[in-house]
Simulated assay, not measured.
Amino acid sequence: MALRRPPRVRSRVPEEPYRINERITAKEVRLVGDNIEIGIYETSKARAIAESQSLDLVEIAPTAVPPVCKVVDYSKFKYEQKKKQKEIKAKAQKVVIKEIRFGPNTDDHDFEFKVKHATNFLKEGSKVKAYVHFVGRTIVFKERGVNLLNRFSEALTDFGKLEMEPKLEGKRMTIILAPLPPKK
């Protein structure tokens, strides 16, 4: 019986998102940065300018003609980019969906109570998913569910807009309401 060697594990260094210094392959580049005369230079001359300031030449727009390069400290540049990405991610809104459940025979008082809750949810900026849950033979009364959900969406027209029409999925008929954008 032959012995098998364990497979080789290659340590893979993550590839840099930007080309720097010697990795820039273009003949000419548009040079930008602090304390630099903006213009088009040969890559070797641009690299020399960066080295004279003991900084790096970083290709920031490789698809431009000619490519745009910036004279900057590369580690500081990477830190700034990472910081910008975190900021963008933090500003992105997280969508919260609140659910409200009805039965096909929901009474008027319960309906008003749930409309009041939905109004508060929409004012907070959350989406509202309202559904009618059909139990047992109540599935026969689908039109009651449609009527109830349409009445619900009409009661909330001042606070939210209908995002999804009443849709039956199994034993649930669902609608989704999104909050209206704040008025300026």
Rank of each mutant, 00 (worst) to 15 (best):
A46Y: 01
Q93C: 04
K116C: 06
E37T: 13
I60P: 01
S44R: 13
V32H: 01
A155V: 04
A92V: 11
L180H: 06
V95C: 05
Y79R: 11
N21I: 08
I20F: 09
L31Q: 04
I97Y: 05
K94D: 09
N21S: 06
I175M: 02
K171Y: 14
V95F: 08
H133F: 12
V96H: 07
G33H: 03
K123N: 08
Q93K: 13
V96M: 05
Q93S: 10
F102T: 06
N147I: 07
V32C: 04
R101T: 15
R10L: 15
K116I: 09
V71H: 00
D73L: 02
E154T: 07
R10P: 08
A46K: 02
R47K: 10
E16L: 15
S54T: 12
K82Q: 13
V135M: 14
D73N: 11
L55C: 05
I24S: 04
K82T: 09
N35D: 15
K171T: 15
L168G: 06
I100T: 06
F77S: 05
A155Y: 04
F152Q: 00
I60A: 00
K127W: 14
P179V: 00
G125D: 01
R47W: 08
K116Y: 07
T174W: 00
V13T: 13
E22Y: 12
S54G: 06
G33I: 01
D158P: 02
V96Y: 08
L148D: 02
P179H: 00
L168W: 00
M173Q: 07
N150Y: 03
S126I: 03
S126H: 13
F134Y: 15
T25D: 15
T157V: 15
R19E: 14
E51G: 06
F134I: 08
P6K: 15
D34K: 10
A2Y: 13
R8H: 10
A46V: 05
D34G: 07
K183T: 07
K127I: 05
A2T: 13
L168C: 04
V68D: 02
I24G: 07
